[in-house]
Nucleic acid binder design. Structure first.
Lengths: 232, 232
DNA sequence: GCAAAAGTGTTAACTTTACACCCATGT
DNA sequence: ACATGGGTGTAAAGTTAACACTTTTGC
């Protein structure tokens, strides 16, 4: 390694695939760029990493700037470093995904690079700026894989939810229909869903029971269970 | 994003966890550093990424410099970007792992940063330079996870191998004993092991049948099967 | 009363686990 | 002949998959 490193220009960035679930649809948070290159295109939210900033920290900052949210679980999934991925120079980008509850009350802030921020369904995305379409696809695939061995979906739902909502979310992510009875049996068998003494309101049909996640039980189950990890 | 990017100094690097299997033990390829910082420490092989070089390309270059090998399957697994991970400045590093067949004929080249390169068992690693111990652990865990849903282990074995060797390799990676009959049944059921008309030689006990991987069948099975991927 | 979604069990198929002995070879 | 690892099958347990009707509620 070069042993004389002076001051560096920042040349890496973070891009975020921020998933949300609304109206039965899986969505991601996009910005509409206000500058060249790719002016007016839709893009993933992202920014350069500051010199005194860790990369997780940078990812959290970007998410916070857009949504006002803190302490959201983010997961790094891939780093993209093709030589010409960015027209303005050599920038490699570390991509993260996050799962958040969409709160229609909360206003989205566009941030410095954007005209506006918006939730967009994952199903009819236009071509995105830079290599962001590829980044999105990679992130979506990681999310799918992860969901099939770890039931992380609850991070996308409101605090109280019905089993049907949970199932619709799984179906939206995995892109296939699931059997209602088998799905419920399995989810309940994990033991981290807590049935509430409360039902859906304002529906024009039989109201469903509401559930919430018991995070304590959840982490107990899914830390020991997945615990194949080395620690030497 | 900063819209005026001039010429950049390189500030990202690649580090590689290169796995091999020899004498019933899982090993990784390490270098002994010849310069400060961490002179004489063991470290993962790595280098800065050149300005006109993609990151996969850089990873392949590093592996090639050490082993003389080309066209080895490498997999990016995580990017490490803590502010102070490198004493000489802000360097983020993209980590890859590779699985290779150890060939005791082939000489290892140390490369420019190293006194020498060596294979070291994963079981009694000393503390490594920089954050390389953490990088190694992360990579080893990814390998384990991956192996439990995709039988990638054959990349570590010689072309012809016995089922016992394959099992020992699984046991070394997963760090647990497996049942011989169940293991064989399962591996053979995949259908990508081809039995050869040949046996082990020079052993002082009953010689075992040799097998080889049928890569065609392997990729057919494990590309359609895992094929939950989106392509929009 | 009807439209819409909630809620509920059983069976068959398949997968995983547990388990022990004889066989072939070299010395 | 003995030591070493090679090679083999079956039964029980657990998991997943397929499948259809009754209940509740609002309109």
């Amino acid at each position: 390694m070069k042993e004389q490193l002076v001051k560096f220009e920042s040349e890496f960035s973070i891009d975020c695939v921020i998933f949300g679930f609304e109206a039965g649809e899986l969505k991601i948070l996009l910005i509409e760029r206000k500058n060249e290159p790719f002016m007016d295109w839709l893009a993933l939210p992202g920014d350069l990493v500051e010199n005194d900033e860790g990369i997780e920290e940078a990812a959290e900052r970007i998410l916070h700037q857009l949504t006002g949210l803190h302490d959201v679980h983010m997961e790094q999934f891939h780093t993209f470093g093709a030589v010409n991925r960015h027209p303005r120079g050599r920038i490699i980008t570390v991509a993260y995904y996050a799962l958040i509850r969409i709160d229609s009350q909360r206003e989205l802030k566009a941030g410095q690079f954007a005209k506006r921020a918006l939730w967009h369904s994952v199903n009819d995305l236009p071509k995105l700026a830079f290599d962001h379409t590829e980044i999105f696809k990679t992130g979506f695939n990681k999310l799918r894989r992860r969901l099939s061995y770890q039931p992380i979906a609850y991070e996308l739902l409101p605090e109280k939810f019905t089993l049907t909502q949970l199932q619709q979310l799984y179906e939206a992510i995995l892109n296939k229909k699931l059997d209602k009875r088998n799905f419920r049996k399995k989810m309940l068998s994990y033991g981290f869903l807590k049935e509430l003494d409360e039902k859906q309101k304002n529906v024009s049909f039989r109201a469903a029971k509401l559930y919430k996640f018991d995070r304590r039980k959840y982490s107990k189950i899914f830390q020991s269970e997945m615990g194949v990890d080395v620690d030497i």
